[in-house]
Simulated scan of single mutants.
Amino acid sequence: MIAIPVETDTQDTMSTKLFGNAKFFALVDPLTKKSTIISNEGCGNGIKTASFLADSGATSALYGFLGDGPFHVMVREGISVYWLGKETMSLDRAIDVALSESLIRVTPENASDYLDPGTNAGACECGCTHD
């Protein structure tokens, strides 16, 4: 399942920029392109959000802004992480982009080029230790 942070719990929603503060995620079956919108039980905390997505069966996740802590949690959980870009788009478009295999996969080796928590300070504010 592909996890995409979205603004609302409707199918005509838009992707949202902030990963940990996303109120909802679309979980998308890559074989059927069918999506289910779920409430983010970790909303407000990127690490809890990352753990919630792992528990929800996500095998990959897209993001616009993401800090080190949630990224490392997803990597440890076996979730592939992809940078969607910093502009929002319709859920349908985000699904098409995800399935086109044109997104950049973020790994520990290239993470410093693609991770940006999107905070005013430019630093992760989740309280993690990045271990």
Rank of each mutant, 00 (worst) to 15 (best):
A3N: 09
I4S: 11
P5R: 03
P5T: 09
E7S: 14
E7V: 13
E7P: 06
D9L: 05
D9T: 10
Q11E: 14
Q11P: 05
Q11F: 07
D12R: 08
D12W: 04
D12E: 15
M14D: 14
S15P: 07
K17C: 04
K17P: 00
K17W: 08
K17V: 04
L18Y: 12
L18R: 12
L18N: 13
F19P: 00
F19C: 01
F19Y: 10
G20I: 04
G20L: 06
A22Q: 04
F25G: 06
F25N: 07
A26Y: 02
V28H: 10
V28N: 12
V28Y: 10
V28M: 10
D29R: 10
P30R: 08
T32S: 15
T32D: 11
T32Q: 12
K33M: 11
K33G: 06
K33L: 10
S35C: 11
S35D: 10
T36E: 15
I37K: 11
I37Y: 09
I37H: 08
N40R: 11
E41L: 14
E41D: 11
E41A: 14
G42Y: 03
G42F: 07
G42W: 00
C43Y: 02
G44N: 09
G44K: 05
N45H: 15
G46D: 11
K48C: 07
F52D: 05
F52V: 09
L53M: 10
L53V: 05
L53S: 08
A54G: 12
D55G: 13
S56R: 14
G57H: 08
A58V: 06
T59S: 12
T59D: 09
T59L: 03
S60E: 13
S60T: 02
S60C: 05
L62D: 03
Y63P: 00
Y63I: 00
Y63H: 03
G64V: 04
G64A: 03
F65P: 00
F65V: 00
L66Q: 03
L66H: 08
D68E: 15
G69Y: 04
G69P: 05
G69C: 13
G69Q: 02
P70L: 07
H72P: 00
H72G: 00
H72E: 09
M74E: 12
V75K: 12
R76V: 01
R76P: 00
R76H: 11
E77P: 04
G78Y: 01
G78P: 04
I79N: 07
S80D: 06
S80M: 01
W83R: 01
W83M: 01
L84E: 01
K86V: 08
E87F: 03
M89Y: 07
S90T: 15
S90L: 14
L91C: 11
L91V: 11
D92G: 13
